[in-house]
Simulated assay, not measured.
Amino acid sequence: MTHPRHRWWRRAKRAAFAVFLCIAAYLIVRAALSIDWQEVRKVLADLSASTIAIALGLTALSYLLYTGYDVAARTYAGHHVPTPRVMAISAIAYAFALNIGAAVGGAGFRLRMYAREGVTLGRITRVIGFCVATNWVGYMLIAGVLFAIGTVVPPPDFPLRAFGLGSGAALRAIGVVLLACAFAYFVACHVTHGRVYHVRGHHFRFPTPRLALLQFAMAATNWTLIGLVCAQFLPQVGDAQVIATVLLASVATALAHVPAGIGVLEAVFIAMLGHRVPPAHLVGALLAFRACYYLLPLLIAAAGYAWLELASRPSSTSPSVAKQ
């Protein structure tokens, strides 16, 4: 029988999520009605070849760095898939995760591709858990620093001010909390390394402190590269402010569960930077960012996945029957 406190907590989470979706929908509709779409097309047409080239180069660096998550996860999980194949699996899963969601893209495609390499289900889940942890501990580090130093101050009409979450002081406090969480993770890796924890039939352990430092370095750098890709299309805004806004938008996207964060990303940027950059310019910049960082890699990933499916030999071990 479900405890009344648990039922209350579930209802509270549903209510909070509903409020969040309403706010996001309001921001999206308000932004769409205020945008001059002819101006958006002009912004896209005026992009220089050098800007696009730099953005594509940074995108390639970001995806290359992301493949390091899975390479490091191989040490943590203890499988023996060759490095080039691990990097291909990682890049493909990343592109699909960004465009169709982490559960299907990041986890689902990894399960499929690693299983074809003969990796057991237990090790695959450890790879997935390690990569997810890497992504978010790096987020906590870079977002914690940028928020804590006051890189972004929401405009006076920011919708969440009514809830006490839209002030510079609130963001600085959130930054401090994020840094504390990142530090707590590293301490846990140092203190508890070697211990195995069992939770609801699953077991896990924290990585070594050296692996934890590698997680922080890779993910914090990758989040910075993502922000710099976007910043190429918004030269009128400082790089640090664009990176911090990308970080805020990424959380909103994760909460909304909208594939590729369509509309949510744009709404957050307009809410945070619309007082400095015309909405049409923001939308044009974000469309260019999506084309470079989301759509082009997705096309390449789709082709790469098709090649892996054709080139890989069916494994005798599938995730449905593998153990360990």
Rank of each mutant, 00 (worst) to 15 (best):
W136T: 08
V104W: 13
I142D: 08
R14H: 13
V196P: 07
T253D: 02
M87F: 03
L248Q: 01
A45R: 12
V177T: 06
A148G: 12
S312F: 12
S90L: 05
R276S: 06
G138A: 09
A102C: 05
A173S: 13
H193I: 11
A288K: 03
T59S: 09
L308M: 13
V176F: 14
F206A: 05
L299M: 11
T224M: 14
L273I: 04
I54E: 07
A285R: 02
L61K: 08
F186L: 15
G274V: 00
R7A: 15
V176P: 06
V152F: 05
D36C: 05
S90H: 04
A12Q: 05
S316Y: 12
G118E: 03
G150H: 03
L33I: 09
V119G: 00
A45H: 10
P209Y: 07
A107K: 00
P297L: 03
L47E: 10
A280M: 08
Y197T: 11
L165I: 03
G101K: 04
L160E: 04
I89T: 02
L298E: 02
A301Q: 01
V43M: 07
A45D: 12
A285L: 04
K323W: 14
G164H: 07
G105N: 01
P82C: 10
L255A: 10
C292A: 13
A53E: 06
R123T: 03
A60L: 12
T125L: 15
L247S: 00
N99S: 03
R116G: 05
Q236L: 12
S320D: 14
R74M: 12
H203W: 14
I92C: 01
A55Q: 04
P84F: 12
P154E: 03
A288R: 01
Y63Q: 06
T120M: 06
A24M: 10
L211S: 12
A53Q: 09
Y197N: 11
Y69K: 06
S315P: 01
A103T: 11
T245Y: 00
A271G: 01
C131Y: 06
T75L: 14
V251K: 02
P314F: 07
V29M: 07
S50I: 13
A103S: 13
S312L: 15
G164E: 03
Y197I: 10
I52S: 08
L141N: 08
Y293K: 01
T245P: 00
E266W: 01
G57I: 06
G164V: 05
A291L: 10
A184K: 12
V71H: 08
R41E: 13
L56S: 09
H198S: 15
R126W: 05
T83V: 13
V81W: 02
I23N: 01
